[in-house]
Design a binder for these strands. Sequence first.
DNA 1: CTTATTATTCGGGTGTGGAG
DNA 2: CTCCACACCCGAATAATAAG
Length: 261
Amino acid sequence: MKAGSIEQFKHLSQFRDIRDFNNQIEQWMIDLKSKFTKSELIALKRIIRFSAKIAGVCNAKIQTLVSACHEAGHEISRSTFERMLRKAKKFGLLIVYNTKKENGKQAHNVYVFQRYTSISSTNDVAENAKIDGAENYHSSFETNNNINKRTENVETEDTLDASYTSSRVPVQFRDFVRCFWNDFTIIEELWKVIQIQTYYYTYMTLEEKTQLGISALKQMIRNLKRGRKIINIFGYFYAIVSALLDREAQEAWREMMWEVA
DNA sequence: CTTATTATTCGGGTGTGGAG
DNA sequence: CTCCACACCCGAATAATAAG
């Protein structure tokens, strides 16, 4: 891969836009926040900031990122940054591509953030996977293998994946759900909940409904990760959406009262 | 409070791959 | 061959936390 301006790495981006990227990062962070040290998180936040032009792609070299941290008042050493990158790579959060200059010389790296991958709703994801101390000696080769195996399993499952989702479901919503349930039936069911609940809210745009769905989903995922036992995700989802709509209606009502008064 | 244990960071050394 | 520019690794120094 040749070095050069960030424009030519556009195709590497895994995200529709910056909001999509931020959503994904938020999900990663729920799992990974505790896996990084304080300084590593500073480094991570910095590289995320540098990945805005093309959502999720960063072509700045490490030294640039390190000095950017220093300018922001955070004294981070290069080693710390590299450690963060190694960890992030191991978790599958990002992929590092090497580039070469025109003359074949080794050049800067391109860091590409990946979409969040969670196999199921079970909360053991955050529990096991102790990545520190002795396990540092595991080669990245090994880790990559594991990740490959996991994705393979998902792909060869009997159920049809998210790509079979009906086009009535907004893409944004579909892509968010698929991180957790890559199954078109679940995605369509969840979207149905939104449709039913917002049926009489004729003023709501599709965009607003999508955002409502995503924030309700986030809340559900958060609670699942905290270990809450949820018997029926659809029922739980329904309740969250209902609560969100109630709150919204209440606020709208209050605003109206203000206008009258 | 001081001391012991653990976690985190830093600096330097190693390896790679191409250029001069 | 050496040099450069980078990623990667390891041990010592330092910081944070627990124990006395």
